[in-house]
Every structure is written in C-alpha cells, then in structure tokens.
Amino acid sequence: MNIKQISLNSTVASIISLSLLMSPQVNAAAENAGEFYLGAKTGWTDFTTQGDDDAWGGSVYGGYQFNSWLSFEAGYNYLGNDKGTIGADSLKSTLQNGEAGLKLDWNLGSAWNLFGKVGASYNDIEHKYADMKQGDNNWSLMLGAGLEYQISHNWRIRTEYQWFDDVGSSKYDPTFVQTDVNYLSLGLSYYFGSSDDGAAAAAAAAATAATAASLQEEPVQEAEPAPEPLPAATLSKGAFGHDSTELTTEAKSSLDPVVTYLEQRPEVNVDVIGYTDSTGAAAYNQKLSEKRAQKAADYLTGNGIDSSRITVEGKGEENPIADNSTAEGREQNRRIEVTYK
C-alpha cells in the first residue's frame, strides 16, 4: 500500500467518526426533492496503463434532485497525471473531463443511502512526450456507485467510486495512452432548501398523524358548559308536598344545573311547563299546574336568571306520560318540565 492510499484511508476513517459524532443532528425524515445542490470531492485515481498509475484528483459537481430517488448530476473532474514511458522517453498525460448523468438513490434508513450513477464524460487529455505536446479528447461511458450520509437537511457526506471507460483516442501507442480510469473520492454536498420544505413537510405530516392518534387514545378534557338534556329538568316524585305549590329541597337540587347552564349560555331561554294527573276537577288541576310552574320559574329568577328568558305555562291534565289509573303513573304525571330553547 503506498502513501496515497494510507492517507486516503485515514481521511475515510476521520469522516466516518465525525458522522457518528454528529448523528443526533440528523433529520430522521430527510428529503431533498425539488432542490438543487452543489458539492466538491477529492480522492485517488488509478489508470490501467503501465508505469506510475496512481494520482490525486479533485472535482466540483452540482445537480437537481427530482424526487427521493432520482437526480440529474453534472461535474468537472481533474483526474491528475498518468505517467509512463515510450522507449527511452517519458510520457505524461494530464487528464480532466466533464461528466453528466443520472444518480439513483436507495434509502437505507433515516440518514444513509446507497446510490448509483450512469452517464457520459467528455475527456480532455494533454500528452507531453519528449519535447512534444499533444491534445487529445474523446467521449467515454461513466459508471459510478457510492454511499451518502445525511448530516442535516442541507449537508451530505459522500464516498464514491467512478469508472471511466477508454479515456483517450489512441493517437499514440494504445498500451500507454488509452486507459480506463478508476476514481475513488470523498465529497461534501450542500442542498439549497430549508428544513421547512420536502423532508420537514413529511416529518410534520407524520408528527400531525402521531398527535391525532395520541388525541384519539387520550382525549383532552376541556371545560365545557353544563350538559343540555331535553328536557332540562323534570320535577315529579318528591317535587312538592301534598296539595302544595312549594318546591321541596329535592326539586331545587334538580333545578340547580339549569341555573348553571343558563348562566353560561346567556343566549339560551327556557320553557317551564306544569302538569297534573287526572284526579280532581280539570279547572282546579289547570290552576295547580300553573302555580307549580311559576314556583319553579321563581326559583330560577331568584338565582339570577332574568325573567325575560323564562316562559311559564300550565297544561293541567294534558300530555300524560304514564297511566293515570295507577298510583305510580299518577305520580309521574304530576310534574314540571323545564326545556331549553
């Protein structure tokens, strides 16, 4: 292993260690769809010619990510010097190219993804042989693969391998000039988007769904007005003494929730309607139902409810809710109903 390879391995180890240290900052749902990006990388190049076939290279690149798995990427690569000999003279070939192609991502989790690249490069080679200088260029197939680590929504580290097929047009001896190029590099990419876009939108949607699920499991208890049953209250058994129009303590307790509700809902009014059973004269029962209804209304006004919100009516023997031929039925029919409106 030569010095260049040792240095490259040390750099890889350093970047991986840095990635692990920074992992708590990773956006767990990182997506960069619809964003442009720029990056730079450097690394080791290898040529399939005879002689000194190692060199350092450097690159700048940029692209556009269409969705979570497909990007278009283009860049410039300086691939270093390929050195060899022809007879007794040395040959130095300086390689650089421009490349363009498609990048395909395979997500491995919250922060890691594999990618593959396929495209073409236009190669420019300057040959120096003895006292001569000769330019050379051609098109090549480019294939690549790599691994990316997402530090945050905007930053990614990548390690990448690229292969360029038959760089050079063989104007000189093809044994020394035309070459495949292997390029192993480390790079850093910056995506021009905010964390409120793309990935963060997905994260926010996930958080909203989680919150909704949590609310379904544990409903938030909010202070609400008193319930609104219909009727609001029914005073029957134990509401009045025998042949009396005075409310009992039990009857007043039944009216207290009505007072509370009307205090909380000033737009709500009530009807207070009195009824009797069928025992006795109908005219007497009518008067008795009116008096008992008025007593219930007086209790409401006595507790702060404006009389304009209360309608009082007696209906005597009308609208029985039980059988008047039984004591139990007659007791149910002797009632006052309070309803909201």
Rank of each mutant, 00 (worst) to 15 (best):
208 T>F: 01
264 Q>K: 09
287 K>Y: 06
270 V>A: 10
84 G>H: 10
161 Y>P: 12
334 R>L: 13
160 E>M: 10
100 A>F: 11
251 A>F: 08
294 Q>L: 08
316 G>S: 11
151 I>T: 11
156 R>K: 15
116 G>Y: 09
82 D>A: 15
301 T>V: 01
114 L>W: 10
242 H>W: 00
316 G>W: 05
277 D>P: 06
190 Y>A: 01
213 A>G: 06
264 Q>P: 01
287 K>W: 07
47 F>L: 07
12 V>Q: 09
163 W>S: 08
203 A>T: 09
20 L>I: 15
212 A>T: 09
177 V>Q: 12
280 G>F: 04
7 S>Y: 07
333 N>D: 05
12 V>C: 01
5 Q>E: 06
67 N>Q: 02
281 A>Q: 08
295 K>E: 15
260 T>S: 14
43 G>Y: 07
37 Y>D: 03
106 W>F: 14
117 K>N: 13
66 F>E: 01
48 T>D: 09
237 K>V: 06
270 V>S: 05
199 A>V: 00
30 A>L: 07
175 T>R: 08
327 A>L: 07
311 T>E: 14
179 T>K: 02
313 E>V: 03
14 S>R: 13
168 G>Y: 03
170 S>P: 01
157 I>Q: 09
178 Q>R: 14
296 A>E: 12
317 E>R: 11
122 Y>T: 05
201 A>R: 12
142 M>P: 04
256 D>H: 03
317 E>Y: 02
191 Y>N: 06
188 L>I: 11
109 G>Y: 07
210 A>M: 08
45 T>P: 04
9 N>F: 00
29 A>Q: 12
11 T>D: 00
117 K>I: 10
131 D>L: 12
185 S>V: 11
234 T>E: 14
204 A>W: 05
43 G>P: 07
83 K>S: 10
63 G>P: 02
78 Y>G: 10
13 A>Q: 11
220 V>E: 10
171 K>A: 00
50 Q>L: 14
194 S>C: 02
288 L>M: 14
95 L>E: 03
195 S>Y: 11
82 D>R: 14
84 G>V: 07
43 G>R: 10
44 W>M: 08
198 G>D: 05
82 D>W: 02
252 K>Y: 04
103 K>W: 02
318 E>H: 00
283 A>K: 15
318 E>F: 00
135 G>S: 06
121 S>V: 03
191 Y>K: 03
230 L>E: 15
195 S>W: 06
90 S>V: 00
133 K>Q: 07
109 G>E: 04
130 A>W: 05
251 A>L: 06
320 P>R: 11
103 K>F: 02
272 V>G: 13
180 D>M: 01
51 G>Y: 09
300 L>R: 08
209 A>D: 13
271 D>T: 13
313 E>L: 04
64 Y>D: 05
246 E>Y: 00
4 K>Y: 13
335 R>Q: 03
320 P>C: 07
165 D>N: 13
191 Y>A: 02
305 I>W: 05
37 Y>Q: 05
25 Q>V: 12
58 G>Q: 11
18 L>V: 09
141 L>Y: 04
253 S>D: 13
165 D>R: 13
13 A>L: 09
46 D>N: 13
315 K>M: 03
124 D>T: 05
